[in-house]
């Protein structure tokens, strides 16, 4: 179950787990019955490691990240299993406990920085607020720290920017400010949920590079949640692929791309147009759509859309098993791709 990064970065990671998610499920009560948005998910993130979580809309990746953050509403939501962060159980933890963790040990960056920043408060105060709250700094210390944070996230003329309001900044700059706020108290885990969706291509690359350089510098663990395989491909140690609330494949990044086992992962990669492909190449979409999560189903959730599906796939739910060739590679499939095409692809 443990994952050691297969990349050279492993030299700098110490071996203890920071976040242990064990059989975590999150169920919502809806009009149409209960909806299991996160279904029996388990994984471990070590200190200094980056995990990418990839899935389409409705795959449960957002609900999973909110569950880890302990940010789900109390009513109408049932959480099961355990999520242990740095020795603290998050599932069922009282708000008072969570407040000591949020910001200080666990920080987050969301998709829309304009919605996360307070529009009528100057940037400077929004950064110093959490510094003074958690680190007990006085006004001038906090200001100096804020200044150095803005410098670290690459904001030009940081001194003037401290006095700006959020609307005076561009989208990329606002996301940098969000990152500065998230980093203010040197968290151990940074959870970035679609941090670059909506940003321009060139700015997106800047933000992702910034995140990974800060991560290395500060020896943080990072969870990078995205719908875009491209975003997570080159900046993570491990990738978890989610489908219909379950983690269907999890592996070190290089392993995942070189020998993916789950047909869904392959279908996801194949349906993405690539720069390296000639134009007018016919794409291979995944036909159909994700299952209705409120209806009880048998077997593998991907079976109706899978070209390799057999009767067993439709009747029995495949468990997450460890690959015989790589102990760090786990997948949930009765007919994994490598055994099917082991002769064709090297």
């Amino acid at each position: 179950m443990s994952l050691t990064p297969g990349l050279d970065r492993s030299a700098s990671t110490d071996e203890s787990a920071l976040l242990e998610v064990c059989n975590a499920s999150t169920t919502f009560a809806t009009d149409r019955g209960s909806l299991r948005a996160v279904d029996d998910v388990s994984f471990v993130i070590k200190r200094g490691e980056t995990l990418g979580i990839v899935g389409e809309s409705g795959s449960g990746k957002t609900v999973l990240s909110r569950s880890i953050l302990g940010l789900l509403p109390r009513s109408g939501v049932l959480q099961e299993g355990s999520i242990v962060f740095d020795g603290t159980e998050i599932v069922g933890a009282p708000d008072k406990l969570m407040r000591a963790i949020w910001g200080a040990k666990m920080a987050m960056v969301f998709q829309d920085p304009m919605a996360s920043l307070n529009p009528v408060v100057r940037i400077g105060r929004q950064i110093t607020e959490s510094l003074r709250l958690h680190l007990d700094l006085d006004r001038s210390e906090a200001k100096a720290t804020a200044l150095s944070l803005l410098e670290q996230v690459g904001i030009p003329s940081p001194k003037e920017r401290l006095r700006s309001y959020p609307f005076e900044l561009s989208g990329g700059m606002r996301q940098r400010v969000m990152i500065a706020i998230a980093l203010a108290c040197s968290p151990k885990l940074l959870l970035a949920d679609e941090p670059t969706t909506g940003l321009d291509v060139t700015v997106q690359a800047q933000i992702l590079d910034l995140l990974s350089s800060l991560q290395k510098e500060r020896h943080m663990s990072v969870i990078l949640v995205s719908h875009d395989l491209g975003v997570v491909a080159s900046r993570t140690d491990n990738i978890a692929v989610m489908y219909a609330g379950k983690v269907v494949e999890i592996a070190p990044t290089a392993t995942l791309f070189s020998s993916m086992a789950m047909p869904y992962t392959k279908a996801l990669v194949d349906s993405t147009p690539r720069l390296s492909q000639p134009s007018h190449l016919r794409l291979s979409p995944i036909e159909g759509r994700p299952p209705d999560m409120t209806t009880a189903r048998q077997g593998c959730a991907f079976a109706p859309r899978c070209s390799f599906a057999t009767d067993r796939c439709r009747s029995e739910t495949p468990p997450l098993v460890t690959s015989p060739s790589n102990p760090l590679h786990r997948f949930a499939c009765w007919n994994p791709l490598n055994s099917i095409s082991i002769g064709e692809s090297s």
């Binding site: 030009p156 561009s170 990329g172 700059m173 321009d200 291509v201 060139t202 700015v203 997106q204 690359a205 800047q206 992702l208 590079d209 875009d228 395989l229 491209g230 975003v231 491909a233 080159s234 990044t253 290089a254 791309f257 990669v269 993405t272 690539r274 720069l275 390296s276």
Partner: peptide
């Protein structure tokens, strides 16, 4: 050239020599 090199590909091996533009339009 910069736009192409900033594009993200779903392939960890395709981390080409990248030209990262500074600033924003």
């Amino acid at each position: 050239e910069a736009l192409l090199s900033a594009a993200l590909e779903p392939d960890p091996s395709s981390d080409r020599s990248r030209i990262i533009l500074t600033g924003e339009p």
